[in-house]
Simulated assay, not measured.
Amino acid sequence: MSKKKIRVGLLGFGGLGQAAGRILQPKSEMKLVAVADRHGYAYNQSGLDIDQLIQTYHDKGSTGYGEGGVISDNSIAELINQADVDGYFLALPNLPNTFMADVTREFIKSGWQGVLVDALKRTSAVEQLLTLQEDLQKAGITYLTGCGATPGLLTAAAAVAAQSFAEIHNVKITFGVGIANWEAYRATIREDIAHMPGFDVDKANAMSDEEVEAFLDKTNGILTLENMEHADDIMLELAGICDRTQVSVGGVVDTRNPKKPLSTNVKITGRTFEGKISAHTFTLGDETSMAANVCGPAFGYLKAGVQLRQKGINGLLTAAEVMPLFVK
Rank of each mutant, 00 (worst) to 15 (best):
T145P: 07
L92N: 03
R38K: 02
Q307V: 01
Q246S: 13
P93K: 07
T123H: 15
M207S: 06
S62Y: 01
L225I: 15
N314Q: 07
I80C: 08
N181H: 09
V103W: 01
Y185D: 14
R122P: 04
N314A: 12
L130P: 01
L216V: 14
A158C: 09
V117Y: 00
V117D: 08
E167T: 15
A187L: 00
Q128E: 14
G9F: 03
T145M: 10
V103F: 00
N293Q: 10
Y301Q: 05
L153T: 07
G114R: 03
F13N: 02
T283H: 07
K303A: 07
N293L: 07
H58M: 01
D86F: 11
Q55A: 12
K138M: 05
S2W: 00
G296S: 09
R271V: 12
I313K: 02
A161D: 13
T264P: 11
I179P: 03
D232M: 06
Y185V: 02
A320K: 03
M323W: 08
L153Q: 11
D202H: 07
G87R: 02
V70T: 14
K138H: 12
V247C: 07
G198E: 02
L120T: 15
V212N: 10
E321R: 05
Y65I: 15
K5R: 10
S248I: 14
R256W: 00
D135W: 00
T288D: 00
V35I: 09
A279M: 06
P26T: 14
E183H: 09
G87E: 04
T264C: 14
Q55F: 09
N257I: 07
N265V: 03
Y143F: 15
P151D: 05
Q82D: 05
H169R: 12
R122D: 12
F89R: 04
P261T: 07
K60M: 06
L53I: 05
N94H: 11
M1Q: 08
D84K: 12
S289T: 14
A298F: 03
R244T: 12
L284G: 05
V327N: 11
A304T: 06
G221A: 05
A119Y: 02
I23Q: 01
G178W: 11
K109S: 10
I6L: 10
A162E: 12
S75T: 04
M290W: 02
Y88K: 00
I76A: 05
N265A: 15
Q45K: 08
H39C: 11
A77T: 06
M228K: 10
S75C: 04
L132I: 09
D243C: 13
V115L: 08
V33R: 03
N97D: 11
A77W: 03
L132T: 10
P258Q: 05
A125P: 06
T318N: 09
T283S: 13
K303T: 02
A19W: 02
W182C: 04
V160N: 13
D254T: 09
M30R: 05
I313W: 01
G296W: 05
G12C: 10
Q82C: 10
